[in-house]
Design a protein around this nucleic acid. Sequence first.
DNA 1: AAGCCGTGGCC
DNA 2: TGGCCAAGGCT
Length: 306
Amino acid sequence: MTATTETAANASPDHDRTDLHAPVVDWFDAHARDLPWRRPEAGAWGVMVSEFMLQQTPVNRVLPVYEQWLERWPRPADLAAEAPGEAVRAWGRLGYPRRALRLHGAAAAIAERHGGDVPKKHAQLLALPGVGEYTAAAVASFAYGQRHAVLDTNVRRVFARAVAGRQYPPNATTAAERKLARALVPEDEATAARWAAATMELGALVCTARSPECGRCPIAAQCAWQLAGAPPHEGPPRRTQAYAGTDRQVRGRLLAVLRESTAPVPQAVLDRVWHEPVQRARALDGLVSDGLVEPLAGGLYRLPHA
DNA sequence: AAGCCGTGGCC
DNA sequence: TGGCCAAGGCT
């Protein structure tokens, strides 16, 4: 095993990187948060719902909405039986509401094509709307205990530091990162699934972006970034997206009005959310073409019913 | 493949 | 205060 893993990029000749497995997994056993989607009763559907909600949204904000969703729609078929607009409404202020639409679409596909059960195969998961490389691997690993490389923003940062000796990973995921992640997956299936959860948790709780707590890190002594003296980030700065004044802000305001109203909303009411008419119209058109808003006759709008 | 897609908390 | 960041996916 050592021979194959050492062929990956930036291999350290000093030690086998499988040395990382035991300390990280042991740390996870001692410090893992008790999150509802990690409990056995969550099931694969609970895991999938949580993964959709956690895409770019912090755990603390997801928790209450997750509980409401699972209580209201305990199985994929329950959600699939609802109008998509109800999913958008129940999404609340989690952000990126297209995720709610995609989750509804995934539930419909599961009900139709998979007999109501979240599929187990990575390829089948990947075929569902809103499920990309990360989410497919996460559901297969966390819900079904399979052996996959699970590469999210936390894991990328942990590997960037512990293995590559850099403060931050590249802006976009590289082939080298995928190769490294694959090489580091423990051979044993059950251990692999725990490794995936453990590396994510380490990145979320200890090896954080802004202020890593290396004094609490179980692999600080083997961390390439620490051993190099914690050098600062080199290369192009992270592109952070503007929000104020963008279409996204306008879309957010429009959708907030529609979420609050069960009855169709007149255009005149929507017009009040933004002063600039061209941008306002563009934002509303975008929501309609995304399927997040349904236009009715007479200049009325509502969340989608079909 | 770079840019778009929400929202809110934090330092 | 305001940029930075948060379990990505899609085009």
